[in-house]
């Protein structure tokens, strides 16, 4: 079923609305934490919330092209915002860990990154996201040409690393971790199947148009 198309004049505004809405969970939870309204372990609650939203935005970023391939919904215009939101959340997740959780104890942070696998993996994903965020603009796309697409394929290992980081960070892998890891696996798996699917669809279309053509000739 076709979605009602958003009139083009609202496209830019809808992208800005996405940034605003997307940052809301972070802003709201920070406010709750800073004003003492998060009970228990406010720093961890905030840190984990940021990490989860980072994963959600990574997943949404990866969902844009399958959505177009399979459902015909073209939300390509939101992909940059979703990707950048993922980056902002990863960056805030890291900042919350560094400033609020570890209180800038650099020795402890370096030891964590070096000694604890889940932190090593998370850190690697964060570092890999930086060039993607820096080149998420029209100028870089033109400047880098075909290299831009190659560079941005880094999002695949980054998403895998993010899901793995989440799974390794907990004592037992629960339904939440399974859902995120499952969605990432599906979305990455789609990339493997996609070329074959597209070829199959193309050939089917050719058969159809070929058939139509022979029919038209016959008539």
């Amino acid at each position: 079923m076709p979605l009602p198309a958003l009139p083009k004049r609202f496209h830019a505004a809808s992208i800005w609305a996405l940034y605003g809405l997307g940052l809301l969970p972070a802003v709201w939870t920070f406010y709750l934490g800073a004003t003492g309204q998060l009970i228990g372990n406010p720093v961890k609650i905030f840190e984990h919330l940021l990490g989860e939203w980072a994963l959600r935005f990574l997943i949404l970023t990866l969902a844009i092209s399958p959505l177009r391939d399979l459902a015909g919904i073209n939300w390509l215009r939101y992909r940059r915002a979703l990707g950048l939101l993922a980056f902002y959340y990863v960056a805030m997740h890291f900042l919350a860990y560094m400033v609020l959780d570890k209180r800038l104890a650099l020795g402890v942070i370096v030891e964590d990154i070096y000694k604890r696998w889940f932190i090593t993996i998370g850190m690697a994903a964060f570092v890999a996201l930086v060039p993607l965020a820096l080149t998420s603009n029209r100028w870089s796309i033109h400047r880098l040409g075909t290299g831009w697409g190659k560079l941005h394929r880094l999002i695949y290992p980054i998403a895998a690393a993010g899901a793995l980081h989440f799974c390794l960070a907990v004592k037992v892998i629960g339904p939440e971790q399974l859902i995120y890891a499952g969605l990432v696996t599906l979305l990455l798996g789609w990339r493997l199947v996609r070329p074959r699917y597209m070829a199959w669809r193309r050939s089917r279309r050719e058969i159809k148009t070929g058939f139509a053509r022979t029919q038209a000739q016959a008539e």
């Binding site: 709750l32 003492g36 998060l38 372990n41 406010p42 720093v43 964590d112 000694k115 390794l168 004592k171």
Partner: peptide, 24 residues
């Protein structure tokens, strides 16, 4: 003796008062 996921050298003492109420 560290746990593979957590250093056991320090601990975060849970306490009221938001981000800055607890202490290491």
């Amino acid at each position: 003796v560290d746990h593979p996921r957590w250093s056991q050298a320090t601990e975060n003492r849970i306490g009221g008062g938001g981000f800055f109420g607890s202490n290491d």
